[in-house]
Design a protein around this nucleic acid. Sequence first.
DNA 1: ATTACTGCAAAGGCTTTGCATTGTA
DNA 2: TACAATGCAAAGCCTTTGCAGTAAT
Lengths: 156, 156
Amino acid sequence: MNQPHLKARIRQTGLRATSQRVAILQVLEEAQEHLDAEGIFQRARQIDPSIGLATVYRTLSRFKEVGLVRQRYLSSDHNREYYERADKAEHYHFHCRACGQVIELETARIRQAREELSAQLGIRFTSACVCFEGYCANCAADLPPAAGDSAPACRI
Amino acid sequence: MNQPHLKARIRQTGLRATSQRVAILQVLEEAQEHLDAEGIFQRARQIDPSIGLATVYRTLSRFKEVGLVRQRYLSSDHNREYYERADKAEHYHFHCRACGQVIELETARIRQAREELSAQLGIRFTSACVCFEGYCANCAADLPPAAGDSAPACRI
DNA sequence: ATTACTGCAAAGGCTTTGCATTGTA
DNA sequence: TACAATGCAAAGCCTTTGCAGTAAT
């Protein structure tokens, strides 16, 4: 329960390894789903009951700065921030409007787009937000052929 | 100042063509930059001084539903919603961290990604959020070779 | 004559911040 | 011993909502 490797990882970034931070990093290590600050808070307080929500926000912000976590948005509520470990391979998120699941997608096309646009326009990319929404294979099968709510075609 | 073609366009969607709605649509027609609700409000009230901010929000939401406008996010503040006319060709937004300008990018790679992922996984896409951040060609030239703030490489 | 739409002000929801205190290095 | 980090509560910010009044069809 002392989590020496997590403490070490935090110290490596120059941050102080407080029990709250270790708890938050542990939550992110173990998380199978995508968590927002509130979700991280609920789990972290089971490890360290003294933790406060403000600390979760401050820590996530700090972790993001030093590259320990990535902050993502999931369609379709862009008003809530989600967090994941930064050591995962590049991937994108798809949110199913019917069953609500989030599927992690892999494609080289986004990187390709960045590279081409860099070459064409001299742009230097530092970050990007790419998230998709629609119906997963299972849910799409249950829908009328060309319906799909108020958003029939993909309006990007 | 009666804007008959705007009124007609609104009525075609089944909505009532109020003076406030005409004003908002006119603002979006004429806008050269990317506007948020507050920005649209400020311009619309010059056309129709009686308009309220809540109406702007309600109208934009309604316009989005009927397909008159698209709602976008621009890196790096995803907490503010921007709006643009829905009759523009598919494009993506790049935000320069240095000069602040927003560049509209065109690339087929995103659509390609959608098509491939659809074919591979049976997913049906309805919408997507794609926005980039970094340094434009001009600003990149002024930066140290491989620096780039706290985000050296593109962390997607 | 309906009833969709509006303005105002209040409420909501997520995130940030001020300040005194705690605990790491 | 410094000073980074914390907890609590209050404030911020954008957006939504309730309600009574107004105006489009």
